[in-house]
Design a binder for these strands. Structure first.
Length: 376
DNA sequence: CACCCGTGGGT
DNA sequence: TACCCAAGGGT
């Protein structure tokens, strides 16, 4: 198979053979490839089969801007703990956040719970099958609504994610840069979507994008769509899709205060529900600003008045839109002292070190704790 | 529409 | 190292 396609590619380059325009035959080749090469993933039931809407929904939410490899263990944990959407609707948000900790984009976890509640409350525990109805639910946008509708219910819908954007932009040699090209790419993807197997088509496009039509160094020579691909014919595949200018990533700085009690507990604080790391636990710190605060200034943000020891080094963490550098100050306090806790004391709690793994701790805060307790 | 929202792996 | 990127959604 690979050799045959390689020869076809070489012939076309040497003889300038015309392309076969992407169309129904492209879809047929893609579906054949999918049946042979598709990834075996825990939320999939098989080609030509509809999957459990709950598992499709859960996986799609987790997969938003997140790699399959990162998602799989979280998906397994969730379905083991909450096998149905009704079970998830009965869960405590705090426990959902604990299970989500480390996966990132924590508003997804809050919307996940809100969506489960809505399904249980307004839909009798059954997901709606139409794109339009799914779109009304929290955490479900245009992509996810189309994905659930097509994959779980077999409806003719066209989810367009980063994979589909890449595959389509190459198939049709779309040179207009993203995000401006999105409407055109959506239109082209919709023209390819088959009436009968829209779910398999969508997943096949994603598998192709993940394994063959990769962002860098695409494997055009073994691609089942190579003879249909306008970009490959023009040796443009690696240059597409074009993208607009990248925004620069600023740095922010702060001082984190790690209080350790004599019995080994550390002081954690719950962040506000909205915004960055919303609802998750943190090590109390100064606000994160454009420069490191002076020590005297920083101490106004310290959760207790005590002897603080700076921990050598710093914690560096890179978020999507800024880089964070935190200096850690550490203090050891007696177990029974009465402290002057700052105004947000009610959002604070003591957590024993042995219980830290079960908390809603984002990765950056795990780094801070590990750094601050490194020599303990 | 532009910006906000995490994290880990690959190059 | 620094940068790119991944099954996007909310505002």
């Amino acid at each position: 198979m690979g050799a045959v396609q390689e020869n076809a590619a070489l012939r076309r380059r040497q003889q300038q053979l015309p392309l076969r325009p992407a169309g129904p035959l492209t879809v047929k080749a893609l579906l054949a490839w999918y049946e042979a090469e598709r990834r075996d993933l825990p939320w999939r039931y098989g080609p030509r089969k509809k999957a459990d809407p709950y598992r499709v929904w859960l996986s799609e939410i987790m997969l938003q801007q997140t790699t399959v490899k990162a998602v799989v263990p979280y998906f397994q944990k969730f379905v083991a703990r909450w096998p149905t959407v009704t079970a998830l609707a009965g869960a405590q948000l705090e426990e959902v956040l604990q299970h989500w900790a480390g996966l990132g984009y924590y508003s997804r976890a809050r919307n996940l719970k809100a969506c489960a509640d809505a399904i249980a409350r307004d839909y009798g525990g059954e997901f709606p099958k139409s794109e339009a109805e799914l779109l009304k639910l929290p955490g479900i946008g245009p992509y996810t609504a189309a994905a659930i509708s097509a994959i779980a219910f077999g409806e003719k819908a066209t989810p367009v994610d980063g994979n589909v954007e890449r595959v389509v932009s190459r198939l049709f040699a779309v040179r207009q840069p993203l995000p401006g090209a999105k409407p055109e790419i959506r239109r082209l993807a919709a023209t390819l979507t088959p009436q009968r197997r829209a779910g398999d088509f969508a997943q096949a496009m994603m598998d192709l994008g993940a394994e063959i039509c990769t962002p860098r160094k695409p494997s055009c020579l073994v691609c089942p769509l190579q003879q249909d691909c306008s970009a490959s014919a023009q040796n443009l595949a690696e240059l597409l899709p074009m993208r607009g200018a990248k925004a620069e990533r600023p740095s922010r700085y702060g001082i984190a205060f790690l209080v350790q009690r004599e019995d080994g507990a550390v002081l954690l604080r719950q962040r506000p529900e909205a915004g960055l790391l919303g609802g998750m636990l943190e090590v109390p710190s100064t606000p994160w600003g454009d420069a490191l605060p002076a020590k005297k200034e920083a101490m106004r943000a310290a959760p207790v008045t005590t002897a603080w020891l700076p921990v050598p080094g710093a914690v560096v963490h890179v978020f999507t839109h800024f880089r964070l550098e935190l200096i850690v100050y550490r203090a050891l306090v007696p177990i029974d002292a009465s402290f002057t806790l700052w105004a947000e004391q009610e959002r604070c709690r003591w957590v024993h070190r042995r219980d830290l793994h079960a908390q809603a701790l984002p990765s950056v805060m795990k780094k801070v704790i590990a750094h601050g307790l490194a020599d303990n």
